[in-house]
Amino acid sequence: MELIKKILDGNEASAARLISMIEEGREEGYRAIAALFPHTGKAHIVGITGAPGSGKSTIIDKLAIKFSEMGKKIGIIAIDPTSIKSNGALLGDRVRMRGAERIEGVFIRSMAHRGYPGGIAKATMGALYVLEGLGKDLIIIESVGVGQTELQISSVCDTVITVFTPDYGDDVQLMKAGIIEIGDIIVINKSDMPGAEEAAKDIASHINYEKKDWQVPVILAQAQRGEGIDRIIDALGSHLEYLKKNNPKGEYRAQKLRKLMFLFLKEELWVRAMKKWIDRNEIKGIVDMVENREIDIYSAVSQAAGIILPD
């Protein structure tokens, strides 16, 4: 395919187009991915998550500049929320990536979260394949920082960086949502603000070190001034080495891919089943009964599932 050839030759416009096609869920896009697939699987995929405004984009900017100096080719996928009311989105992460944006070889793509069937992971996975085809060897995903999305993003990444700020006290929710558990590297950014040391200690005390043989580092940073970036780069290197040593055959990836495969399969089956059944009278009848409070939800679901997928 012409498009694939161009992407492999490093043509950014073609790569951008293919990412859009995946975002739009187009068949030809998926076919192109299948052709690109043999050229993927080698990049280090890093996810970065944390509360809004904690400094994720600024950190990525500084990381991309340093990694580029080291000769790495960087891809960045920046995900922002979609407005539930209008379905529109304001994608503003690039504003804080001014340095990276100027470097040739850094490809930045903003992505609205939308309400993707299969979750944000589905579009992100496609973008990852494309960026790898484009020759990127380090791809950083900035995520929106809430709940379910984070867990999905972590399943497409090798390493997850979680960013806190000294006033993270407001982020108890994040901790509850398992944000600390998914972090392989924890960064306390804006450490120019008071309380950074205490925050680092406090957060470290929430890490369950016994359960892991990887020692999650807690790094103090001031991304705006570029401080702490070297330590994050070292930690990324160490984590990649750790993964390789402990998973000589890429076992951790196998596990994540398996999880993703079933996640995508679940959504695909749902979409197909709905297309086929939503307007059929058997199903409509059951929905009517539920709406009229003639039967309970459990009975309704059992009946409907039995019709769609008989034993």
């Binding site: 950014e12 416009a13 951008a16 187009r17 990412i19 859009s20 529109g88 989105a89 304001l90 994608l91 503003g92 690039r94 504003v95 001014r98 944006e101 100027r102 490809f107 930045i108 793509r109 903003s110």
Partner: peptide, 21 residues
């Protein structure tokens, strides 16, 4: 909507438009 931020050169604006499709 992708917002570019201030002080962009023309070639930067074109690059953004390409990457963001």
């Amino acid at each position: 909507v992708i917002y570019s931020g201030l002080h962009k050169r023309i070639d930067q604006i074109i690059n953004i438009a390409i990457q963001e499709d």
